[in-house]
């Protein structure tokens, strides 16, 4: 089967999952205590005409299946409802926060992947106390809640040493332009990205080490050495390549972990992203925003899994 047809098939597989996620979302609205309109609007004194419009729009006088159909229709047109807490459509609200979250999670993911793979390879290659140290560190890090690690980092580097800012993504007076602004941005990014990256890094280092140990024992590595390949080449050409599918699977299938972590980390650092928005919307009982975020996060996980499978397939052609 070609990669293309595999991708298409996998895509077809993802669609019912996405649909099921949307239905679940609908069920949460329907099952929420009180009037579904309250669930849709949140605990806000909404204008009476809006409430009436919602009732009609979502057909609350209609039987459940019809309401589900209407709900899906709204979703299909990217209408995620209106947030009274913020006085703007949820889609606008979410779109404004998306960049910050992508920046944070992207940085954390990159740091975790690069360092995790490097540490895992190092541990597998060197063995001995390096290996024990990496494994010990990974076990320890994996048990640390991100939000506590965030607080510790703030205590140490922002409050104790005063080196880095502890809240927000940019100074309140506005970001500087050009290079200075970029460096400043990094200063704000460093602590939250580290807090978010650590557990993921531990996970990646673990799987990389485990796979690398296995591959280093493989016959084909012995054969490569018998051809005169140096240890560096063995590590890059054989170990890394053969470890990659498993590492990518672990990375991709734990996207949920990263997103959950980012909700917590953003809250600790006042990072103006989706996670912080979730925290605020829960505190304000802003239901439409909460549900829209749930929908987005679920969709991201489905898509991350899809991409993972395709990438896995691209790296290892043997998979049937």
């Amino acid at each position: 089967m070609s990669l293309l047809s595999y991708t298409l098939r996998r895509l077809l597989h993802a669609i019912p999952l996405l649909l099921a996620v949307a239905v679940l979302n609908f069920c949460l609205i329907a099952a929420a205590p009180g009037d579904p309109v309250t669930a849709l609007i949140g605990d806000f004194p909404a204008p009476a005409e809006y409430v009436a419009k919602m009732r009609q729009d979502y057909g609350l006088d209609q039987p459940l299946p019809v309401r589900l159909g209407r709900y899906l229709q709204h979703l299909a047109s990217l209408d995620l409802g209106y947030s009274f807490a913020n006085r703007m459509p949820v889609s606008t609200l979410v779109a404004a926060r998306l960049g910050a979250t992508l920046k944070l999670t992207g940085t954390a993911l990159a740091v975790a992947a690069v360092l995790g793979v490097a540490l895992g390879l190092l541990a597998a290659r060197l063995g001995g106390w390096v290996d024990r140290l990496v494994r010990f560190g990974a076990t320890l890090s994996y048990a640390m809640p991100e939000f506590w690690l965030g607080q510790l980092l703030i205590l140490a580097f922002a409050i104790g040493l005063g080196w880095l800012p502890s809240q927000g993504a940019a100074p309140l007076r506005g970001a500087a332009a050009g290079w200075a602004g970029f460096v400043e941005g990094l200063r704000y990014l460093l602590l939250p990205a580290s807090a978010l990256a650590l557990r993921y890094l531990a996970l990646i280092a673990r799987i990389t080490r485990a796979r690398a140990v296995e591959v280093l024992r493989a016959d084909y590595v012995l054969a490569a050495r018998a051809r005169g390949a140096s240890e560096t080449r063995v590590l890059l050409d054989h170990v890394l390549r053969n470890a990659a599918p498993s590492v990518i699977t672990v990375i991709g299938y734990n996207a949920g972990l990263l997103l959950a972590g980012s909700a917590l980390t953003e809250t600790v650092f006042g990072w103006p992203g989706i996670g912080r928005l979730l925290f605020d919307s829960i505190a304000a009982r802003d239901t439409p925003t909460m549900l829209a975020i749930l929908l987005m996060v679920s969709a991201s996980v489905v898509i991350a899994n899809l991409l993972t499978d395709v990438l896995h397939r691209l790296l290892d052609r043997r998979v049937a």
Partner: peptide, 8 residues
């Protein structure tokens, strides 16, 4: 079979 790298 085992002495050839399956991914190369």
């Amino acid at each position: 079979s085992s002495f050839l790298d399956p991914l190369l």
